[in-house]
Design a protein around this nucleic acid. Structure first.
Lengths: 114, 114
DNA sequence: CTAATATATGAGCAGATATTCATATGAAGG
DNA sequence: CCTTCATATGAATATCTGCTCATATATTAG
C-alpha cells in the first residue's frame, strides 16, 4: 500500500463511485449561481405568479429597466425564462415548472428554520 | 388614476400580493449563492454519500486543504453542514436532508434537458 | 516539553459580477 | 419619415469571491 500520512482510500473509492460526473457538477453549480442573486430570485418569483413585460418587472422591483434587462438575459441564457414580443413590449415567462419547484424547495428550507 | 406611459397596476398589485416577503427573497438568494459554486457543490455531493474529514475531501477533489477549509466554513455558516472533532481530524457531514433534496432537484433539472 | 499531523484563518490578489450610463434597435402612431 | 415608447446591449466601475500563501491553533505521540 501507500505510505501516506493518513489514508482515506477505503472511504474515498466508495464516494468516488457515487459522485455524478464532473460536467454535471459544474453545470449544477452554474445553475444555482443563476438562482444565487436576489434580483434574479425576485424576477423568478414574479414570473412564477404571472408573465410580465420588462418594464412591469422593473416597476415591481423598483429597479431600472436596464438592470432588469441584463438579468433577464442571464435568466434566458440559462433557459430559466422565455419571452415573446407583443407589439412594443416583450413578455417574459418561466420556461419550466422545474424553476417553480426549485424556488419552492429553497423557500421551504429557509422558512423551516425559523 | 395615474398618467403613466404604460400602466401595469392591474397585473402588478396581484403579483405583489403573492410575493414572499423581501427578507425571505434575500435569504433565498443567499442560500442559492452557497450552492452556486462548483467546489461547494462537489463537497456537498461528497458529504451526501458519506461523512468525511477535511483532508479526505481535499484529496477527493484534488484541491488544497486550505481551499477546502475555507469553503467548509462558508457551508457551515450557511448551516448546510455540521462537523465534529474526532481526535486530530474534524469530520464534516450534511446538517440536513433538505440539502440532499435541493441538490437532487437541481441535478434532475440538469440531466432532464439532455 | 517537542515534533508531527490536521485544521482554521487572515491577508492579498486575480477574476467574476451587478449595476449604471449612454446608446442602439424595434415597433406603433401620426 | 419622424417621434415616442419599450427593450437590448456595450463599456466602465465598484464590489464581491475563491484561491494561494503564510501562519496560528489543536490534538496526539514520544
Amino acid at each position: 500500500m501507500a505510505n501516506r500520512k493518513h489514508d482515506h482510500e477505503n472511504s474515498l473509492s466508495a464516494v468516488r463511485g457515487e459522485m455524478p460526473p464532473e460536467e454535471d457538477l459544474c453545470n449544477l453549480g452554474d445553475l444555482f449561481k443563476v438562482f444565487g442573486d436576489t434580483t434574479r430570485v425576485k424576477i423568478l418569483c414574479s414570473l412564477s405568479e404571472s408573465e410580465l413585460c420588462v418594464c412591469a418587472i422593473a416597476e415591481l422591483l423598483g429597479m431600472t429597466q436596464s438592470a432588469i434587462s441584463h438579468q433577464l438575459k442571464v435568466l434566458k441564457d440559462a433557459r430559466l425564462v422565455g419571452n415573446r414580443r407583443e407589439g412594443k413590449t416583450v413578455v417574459y415567462f418561466l420556461s419550466d415548472d422545474h424553476v417553480r419547484t426549485i424556488i419552492a424547495q429553497g423557500l421551504e428550507h429557509i422558512t423551516e428554520k425559523r
